[in-house]
């Protein structure tokens, strides 16, 4: 259960990235899973090369994620903004395939892991894995930082303004394309950071991102669009749910349960379970 809660905050972080991009530019980012996988392998490579502390290595990963996101924005997203949704689905799917293809060529599809263990924390008869606690704390910090950035800072407010009314934002002197490219970069950085954190928890392959992409979708519809903190909470809920069912059934049932949930939520709460406050 508690482990589920800890892992859930990492799901939440991943979903925040997807939700931000979806909410701000109305693009369903199908590169999300590939970016998560890149984050995993980024952690693997950096950890092998620099033997730094994994949670410090998060910072260069986030930096690279931002840059990569901005580049992908200009290559694949800029042209399809405001066009039919199918266009951006196709173009992000293409980028996804390219990344997975290159990744497969470099790392094949065999499993890797990051060999790193923090001492656990024993409370009563139960021991929490150290890595789980640290990953949850890191995810929480990043999630709160993003929320603060969006709510309190000038560039954060500019992102929300462009999301609200792009033409009006231009009238204010805000370069909306620059803002969109940065928002995309932040979304990708979140995906990469969550992948890096997952890499410290479980073994992974270049294809693992797909699972987490699906979880991010579930979390995003649970939370409703454009509510980053909602995504965090929904991620934790999903983790809890997984933690609660695993003792009773095989892990292979989890996707089925999650997608049943996905459909039920879409039908019953089209604006997410926190959708009441939506304008």
């Amino acid at each position: 259960m508690i482990d589920g809660l800890l892992v859930g905050s990492v799901y939440g972080l991943a979903a925040m990235g997807l939700s931000l991009i979806w909410g701000v530019m109305n693009v369903i980012n199908l590169t999300h899973g590939a970016m998560i996988a890149l984050g995993m392998f980024g952690m693997y490579v950096l950890f092998g090369a620099i033997t730094g502390h994994p949670y410090v290595l998060l910072l260069p990963e986030i930096g690279v994620g931002l840059l990569l996101g901005v580049v992908v924005y200009w290559v694949a997203i800029h042209w399809v903004i405001g066009r039919p949704m199918l266009m951006s689905l196709l173009s992000t799917f293409a980028v996804n395939m390219i990344i997975i293809g290159i990744g497969t060529a470099v790392w094949t599809t065999s499993p890797y892991n990051v060999n790193f263990n923090l001492p656990g924390l024993t409370v009563g008869s139960y021991t929490f894995t150290g890595n789980h606690i640290a990953a949850a704390v890191a995810a929480l910090i990043l999630a709160l930082a993003l929320d603060l950035f969006l709510r309190r800072t000038r560039p954060g407010k500019a992102i929300r303004a462009v999301s609200d009314h792009r033409e009006a934002a231009e009238l204010m002197g805000i370069s909306s394309t620059t803002v969109l490219s940065i928002a995309f970069g932040i979304g990708i950085a979140m995906a990469i950071a969550s992948g890096a954190l997952v890499a410290t928890l479980f073994p992974f392959t270049i294809l693992s991102g797909g699972t987490y992409q699906l979880k991010s979708f579930v979390v995003t519809v649970l939370a409703g669009l454009g509510k980053p903190l909602g995504a965090l909470v929904a991620g934790v809920l999903l983790g809890l749910l997984e933690g609660a069912v695993t003792p009773f059934m095989a892990a292979s049932w989890i996707p089925l349960i999650e997608f049943t949930l996905f459909v039920v939520v879409l039908v019953a709460f089209p604006r997410g379970i926190f959708g009441k406050v939506a304008a």
Partner: peptide
């Protein structure tokens, strides 16, 4: 038509 930022 004002074009405010509704969520701000």
């Amino acid at each position: 038509g004002r074009q405010l930022f509704p969520t701000l």
